[in-house]
Computed example of a mutant assay.
Amino acid sequence: MIGHEPKELLRTLLNDYKMPAASLSKITGISEQVILDFANGENIQPAITQTEMMDLIDLVGLLVIGVPSTDANERVSAITQALTDEFGIPVETISLFSNLECEDIEEFMKENASLSIEKRYSLAVTVLFCIIYLKDDYFIYETPPGFGFNLCNGAFPRLTKRLSNHASAHPMLET
């Protein structure tokens, strides 16, 4: 993340956003102590691989920079787009699941403010429910395809690249 020190972003996530190091450990597979050591400025290179380090930095950047800078409607739109583009789920299917008209969803994809709050809520719950169940087989810990890139304006190219290589091995996918 150009212009952002990863250790500072991690401290912001831990302190300002109250994200427990234990949660980051569960998400990334990196020990809680290593995460805390990194936040405290210690050299953690011997303890983790370069890939694990980059994944942690990408995740922290997404959570500290990407999430707060993106409107909730944009997130729902990006996830809906991922369901249709990446998984081939038709808008009609999403509309039936959410009890909305196809036209409502298509208009929302073009103009996020086009739906009433009630309809946006229904769509959000539906697409988030779908993406959560699809993620175990498809995603690692990041975000839906396009989500990181769209929501962070390309600020996380490594994250976006990993999403295109989703079939690669990851400790969280081991059973």
Score class of each variant (00 low, 15 high):
Ala39Phe: 12
Leu123Thr: 02
Ile132Gln: 14
Asp55Met: 15
Gly148Ile: 06
Ile79Ala: 09
Glu92Ala: 15
Ala39Val: 07
Lys161His: 02
Leu24Pro: 03
Leu56His: 02
Val127Phe: 03
Arg158Thr: 06
Ser69Glu: 11
Thr126Phe: 00
Ser23Lys: 14
Cys130Met: 12
Arg75Ser: 11
Glu92Ile: 10
Ala82Glu: 01
Ile89Met: 05
Phe139Asn: 06
Phe87Gly: 01
Tyr141Leu: 08
Glu107Asp: 10
Pro90Trp: 04
Ile89Gln: 01
Asn40Met: 15
Gly29His: 12
Glu74Tyr: 09
Pro157Leu: 06
Ala21Leu: 11
Met54Tyr: 09
Thr49Lys: 05
Lys110Trp: 10
Ile132Asn: 12
Cys152Pro: 03
Val125Cys: 10
Lys7Arg: 15
Asp71Lys: 15
Leu13Val: 08
Phe147Cys: 02
Val64Lys: 03
Glu74Trp: 07
Glu42Ser: 06
Glu111Pro: 03
Ser116Asn: 14
Gly29Cys: 12
Phe139Lys: 04
Glu74Pro: 04
Lys161Thr: 08
Ser95Gln: 03
Ile132Cys: 08
Ala124His: 10
Leu62His: 11
Asn150Val: 00
Thr51Gly: 04
Pro157Glu: 13
Glu42Asp: 12
Lys135Ile: 11
Phe87Met: 09
Thr126Ile: 05
Asp71Ser: 08
Asp16Ser: 11
Ile35Ala: 01
Met109Glu: 05
Gly66Asn: 06
Phe87Cys: 04
Ala167Thr: 11
Thr93Met: 05
Val60Ile: 14
Asn165Asp: 08
Asn15Ile: 11
Gly88Trp: 08
Thr175Asn: 15
Asn150Ile: 04
Leu159Arg: 00
Ser168Arg: 14
Val91Met: 08
Lys119Met: 10
Leu24Cys: 04
Leu36Arg: 14
Gly66Trp: 03
Met172Pro: 02
Ala72Glu: 14
Phe156Thr: 00
Pro20Asp: 14
Gly146Asp: 00
Glu8Tyr: 11
Asp58Lys: 02
Pro90Gln: 15
Gly146Ala: 02
Pro157Met: 08
His170Arg: 10
Lys26Ala: 07
Gly148Asp: 00
Ala78Gln: 03
Glu103Pro: 04
Arg162Pro: 01
Phe38Lys: 08
Ser114Val: 02
Arg75Trp: 13
Ser168Gln: 15
Leu96Gly: 10
Thr49Ala: 09
Met109Gly: 09
Tyr17Ile: 12
Ile65Lys: 06
Lys7Met: 10
Asp136Tyr: 11
Gly66Ile: 05
Ser98Val: 03
Ala78Met: 03
Asp104Gly: 06
Asp55His: 13
Thr160Phe: 02
Ile57Cys: 09
Thr84Leu: 04
Gly61Cys: 05
Val127Asn: 01
Ile140Gly: 00
Arg75Tyr: 12
Asp16His: 15
Ile131Gly: 08
